[in-house]
Design a protein around this nucleic acid. Structure first.
Length: 259
DNA sequence: ATGACGCATCGAATGCGA
């Protein structure tokens, strides 16, 4: 079973990219972030025609919005972080039945946070605390769990093109990295780092200043798998191909292969 | 460099992203 996380930066603007990409990469599940549309605008028919008949959607106007799009049935769909009041549509969870048992999927568009010390940064810290509490409960109920999404955190120095120049700036602060570590301490593993990976592997590049062409990127899109699934993980890769297409998302898709 | 580029809301200019 293959599942992909992809911040599409507007599903309306990126629908053709998503469809083209799934033709070349017919993964079982897509976890999408930054839909930037309301549920009534979700392109259900186009995705169903592409083989993704089961869609769990949590959208909102203009900003945020997440969805899980699957070839097989999704059940026990939960929107937002249980126990954390949030006006923004950032998290959707669902269970799907894989070949070796159920898999709980939690798909998040984590808060950006703008700058340390800002109100938005404080919101990010509160949000991350709420997510941790929620996941503790989810993991107790669903040992076979995968947390994916745009975390907006470059966890280690090697996840940034300029770790020293950007030290303690947004996505690189000790507080954000501490929250990431606390997620790992719940019993999750960084799927991407379970395998040898090329140096300077990133999942996001700024649109400006030839960011992609210069590989000035960050690895902020992550796939964390629970201990119970560890032996089932067979690969985790970032596909830079669609970042080279005209009018791309600034994020690349990250795919996990589970057996 | 309070920039750059892109998207949404709009029907110009602004908010926001990372």
């Amino acid at each position: 079973m293959k599942l992909t996380t992809w911040n599409v930066n507007s599903l309306t603007a990126r629908l053709q990219h998503v469809l083209d990409w799934t033709v070349a990469n017919p993964v079982d599940v897509l976890c999408l972030q930054e839909l930037k549309l309301t549920d009534d605008k979700f392109p259900l028919e186009a995705l169903q025609s592409a083989g993704y008949s089961h869609c769990a959607v949590f959208g909102q106007k203009t900003y945020n919005g997440v969805a899980i799009v699957s070839r097989t049935a999704l059940r026990d769909i939960v929107k937002n972080i249980v126990g954390f009041e949030d006006e923004q549509a950032r998290v959707i969870a669902a269970t799907l039945d894989g070949p070796a048992g159920p898999v709980r999927l939690v798909n998040g568009y984590f808060v950006n946070g703008q700058a340390p010390g800002s109100d938005k940064f404080q919101y990010k810290m509160n949000w991350l605390g709420g997510l941790r509490n929620y996941l503790r409960t989810e993991l107790a109920q669903h040992p076979r769990l995968v947390l994916v999404g745009d975390f907006n955190i470059a966890f280690e120095d090697r996840d940034s093109y300029d770790p020293n120049g950007l030290r303690e700036t947004i996505h690189h602060t000790s507080e954000e990295r501490g929250h990431f570590r606390q997620l790992l301490e719940l019993g999750l593993l960084d799927g991407f780092r379970m395998f040898d990976q090329p140096n300077k592997s990133y999942s996001w590049w700024d649109y400006r200043m030839l960011g992609y062409q210069k590989n000035r990127g960050l690895r902020i899109d992550h796939v964390l798998v629970s201990e119970a699934l560890k032996s089932r993980v067979h690969a985790c890769t970032i596909d830079r191909t669609p970042r080279k297409w005209p009018k791309p998302s600034d994020h690349a898709p990250v795919t996990l292969e589970l057996q």
